[in-house]
Simulated assay, not measured.
Amino acid sequence: MPLFKRNPFGHILFIKKWLIRILGVVSHGRYRSFNNLQIEGSEILRQLPDNNVLFISNHQTYFADVAAMLHVFNAALKGRDDTIKNVGYIWNPKLNIYYVAAGETMRSGLLPKIFAYTGSISIERTWRSGGQDVKRQVKMSDISNISKALDDGWVITFPQGTTTPFKPIRRGTAHIIKTYNPIVIPIVIDGFRRSFDKKGLRIKKRNVLQSMVIKEPLEIDYENESVADIVTKIEYAIEQHPSFLKVISPEEYAKQEAELNKKREFWNL
């Protein structure tokens, strides 16, 4: 690879590779030592094409979710089945993986700016800014950048646009799916909210079993399904449809989550 070869966003791939290597080694223990990451479906990743793949997931922390996915994706592509054991897989990472993130988050300090260089597609949220609710037009440059990333590789997005569970799906994700017809891979994660602080930088609780389930591609009729239809499919696929909460009250849900967290302290069993 030429030393100064760049990706479509102008990032020098040599620098990006070394940042991923360093951050990968530093963060590995957060999913293997301090806590344990249980993975399902990594074989699905090896069947995907090199580009025009959109991953949709629920969201629990700003940074730890994406970091875990980068570990899982690269480990799977190096032949590991549902494990990130032996961090050597990060030495030659897949460099055309991108993730959609709020621009204000990625500009909030030196560390987020470093993270951004590893693959962030920074967008301006149309509904939230500086902790306040806002209403503003979608920037066409943001849509263009997502298109550019899909043309080049894989894109991770969190269609709820927030780490708060069971919030509505943002329709922009469905519009992107209808417009660019990517292969859509749902991912459901759990345990990250209990393991880390909201930013996903500080370990809040150890000995928590984190989980990541990678599902088969969504079946989508790109021509005939409406945006509303796709939104509903996304809600069910990432297990954030309101019906998942109807069987129990929010109070009972919180109680069961606390009890589950105790059971997941696997080192204390």
Rank of each mutant, 00 (worst) to 15 (best):
H71A: 06
V72W: 10
L77Y: 02
G79Y: 05
G79A: 02
R80Y: 11
R80W: 02
D81V: 09
D82T: 05
T83M: 02
T83K: 01
T83S: 15
K85D: 09
N86V: 00
Y89M: 09
Y89W: 10
Y89F: 15
Y89D: 03
I90H: 03
W91K: 09
P93C: 05
P93R: 04
K94E: 05
K94Q: 11
K94T: 14
K94F: 04
K94S: 03
L95W: 02
I97L: 15
Y98T: 07
Y98N: 11
Y99K: 10
A101L: 12
A102D: 13
G103S: 12
E104F: 08
T105H: 12
P112W: 15
P112N: 06
P112K: 08
K113C: 00
K113L: 05
I114Q: 05
F115R: 07
A116M: 08
A116P: 07
A116V: 03
A116Y: 06
A116S: 13
Y117R: 10
T118Q: 06
G119N: 09
I121R: 10
E124V: 10
R125P: 02
R125K: 13
T126Q: 10
R128S: 01
R128D: 03
R128E: 08
G130L: 04
G130V: 03
Q132F: 04
Q132Y: 04
D133I: 03
V134T: 06
V134D: 00
V134K: 01
K135S: 10
R136W: 03
Q137S: 06
Q137K: 14
V138L: 14
K139S: 04
S141G: 00
S141A: 02
I143C: 01
I143E: 00
I143W: 12
S144P: 00
N145P: 04
S147Y: 14
D152H: 12
W154H: 15
V155H: 13
V155L: 06
T157I: 14
F158R: 07
F158H: 12
Q160Y: 03
T162D: 05
T163R: 15
T164F: 09
P165T: 11
R170I: 10
R170F: 02
G172H: 07
G172E: 07
G172D: 05
A174I: 14
H175T: 07
I176V: 15
I177R: 13
I177A: 13
Y180I: 05
Y180N: 15
N181M: 13
V184M: 10
I185K: 11
P186E: 13
P186S: 15
I187S: 13
I187R: 09
I187F: 05
V188C: 07
V188R: 15
V188M: 11
D190H: 15
G191A: 06
